[in-house]
Amino acid sequence: MAIAQAIGDTIEDQRTPPPDPKKRGRFTPYLLLLPGMLWLAIFFAVPLIFLFSTSLQTPVAGGEVGEFEQTFNFGNYVETLTDEYYYVPLFRSFIYSGIATVLALLIGYPLAYMIAFKSGRWRNLLLVMVIAPFFVSFLLRTIAWRQILADEGVVVGALRVIGLVGDTGGIYPSALAVITGLTYNFLPFMTLPIYASLERVDPRLIEAGRDLYAKPFTGFRKITWPLSMPGVVAGTLLTFIPAAGDYVNAELLGTGKNSMIGNRIQYEFFNVRDYPTMAVLSFVLMACILTIVLVYVRRVGSDDLV
C-alpha cells in the first residue's frame, strides 16, 4: 500500500504540465511529418511525374530502339486502351485477383476464426504456421506449385482417377493454376488482419447474444462479422491490390493466354522497349486500382481507411 502510494506519488511528481499549445507544437507535427513526406516526394511523387511525362512521349523518327522524345501525345492513352492486346490482360488482372481475393477470404476467414476462438493452447503454433511460408522465398513457393500441379504430379494424378481431368489434360499451366498461386501466396495477408480483429472481439458480446436467444448463425451475422469488418476490409485490400499487380504467378504458372497486366508491362518493357505505352499502362493500372478500392471502401463503409 505504501509502495503503491510512493509510486503513485512519484508518477504524480514527474508528470509534466500539459504543454502550452500556443508556445510549442505548432510546428512539431510538421517536423514529425517531414521525413515521411520527403520520402514520399522523392520516391513516389517525383517518379510519378517522370512516369507521366514518359507516357506522353513519342518515338524519334528513324531513331534507335528505345529512343523517345518528349511530346504531349495524349493519343498514347487512347491507342493503348483501345488495343485488345493491352486491355484484355488488364481486365484479366482484376478478374484473377478478384477471384483470388474471394477464395482467400473463404479460406482465410474460417482459419482466422478457428485460431481466434477455438485453438486454445495451439493458437501460437497455428499462427506460426500461417506465417511460416514467408520464411521461404516467394519465387520458390510459386515454383513449387509447378511441381505440385505438374502433369505427372499427385494432384493431377488424383483428379484423373476421379475423372475431373482428362487423361491428357492438366492443370499447369492454366488460369486455374495462376489463381491457385495467387490465392496461396496472398492468403496470409488475408488471414492475419482478420485474425487481429477477431481476436479483439469481446466473447461476452457473443455470450450476451446467446443469452438473448440468438441462434449461433444470427450471433455471427449480427455480432462477430460486423466487428471483424475492419480486418476483412484490410485483408481484402492487402490481397487484392498486390495480386492485381502481380506478375510472378502468371509468369510461372500460366501461359501467354493467362498474362496479367504486370506480365504485359514486363515483357514489352524489356523486349519491345516501348516505354511510353508501358508508362500509360502503369498509370491506368494505378488509376483502376485506386477507383476500385475507393468504391469498395465507400460501399463497405469502413471509416478507418478512408
Partner: peptide, 11 residues
Amino acid sequence: YSDAFGRVIQG
C-alpha cells in the same frame, strides 16, 4: 517484329 512476336506469345 518484337512487338508482333510478343503479341503472339503473350497474347
